[in-house]
Amino acid sequence: MHVTEAVTTQRARRASPWSQHPLAGPLLGVAGIVLFLLIWEAATRTGLVNPKFFPPATVVLAQLGQDLVSADFWASVGLTMRSWLIGLLSAGIAATALGFIIGSSTFLRRITHSTIEFLRPIPSVALIPLAVLLFGIKMESSLMLIIYASFWQILIQVLYGTADVDSVAMDTAKSYGLGWWARIRYVVWPTTLPYLITGLRLAAAVALILAITAELVIGAPGLGKEIALNQSGGSVVPMYSLVVATGLIGVAINIGMRLLEKRVLRWHSSQRGDVIV
């Protein structure tokens, strides 16, 4: 007991106290962003990198500011986010339904295992030429890639989840005479939900990547297409500002999915914080 105390106090003394402050993390984070922007600015202003190909931070941010009040920019964002949302939702619904069906029987789980393990690592970009042949440069091309890529992420998680059902809980439900649907609703669903949300969170990031990729490579309308157009037209600054915008959208999606996770799983022990024993 005394030993642990001694170690903790020594540890506290060794770490500088101000970095332990609750506000230190966010403040340092902001400082990090500012520092990064300063280095970027300095590197381009001093000619360390060619400003023609790598414009200064202030110029790019100014352009981003202009973008943020332009209707065209938001129209592109809207198109990209529309295919993102439709793709993610369809993949989510299909994968959840199939996952519950496969997960409910050991036979199905075993017989599909090798096929799923084979199809999953196939890179979705391999389907780009097929999508072009089938749908051309429409949104359906992006949807095909998005759904394929996010489907596996979610399906695998749902399968893990349905395998994780506590057998005692399942037997209890059975002996209390819960029907098939009630068992799914009150036993399997709550066990699987955390896994499903994890799958959705991973798939949300993947879906954005594929949405942008489809627009970039195939030319389906959206942010990616704008980037490709700006690149081939040699308008460097707008291109950088769009790249920064995609990064910000990515961050927003990550934060949004974390919030969703917190909200949906607030009853779950992983979200309730540590119980002090």
Partner: peptide, 21 residues
């Protein structure tokens, strides 16, 4: 702590947009 937000931002950029860049 300094680098966390910057790294999160870089991670969130969809990597294919780096191709034209």
């Amino acid at each position: 702590q300094l680098s966390e937000p910057v790294l999160e931002f870089f991670r969130a950029i969809p990597p294919p947009v780096l191709v034209p860049l």
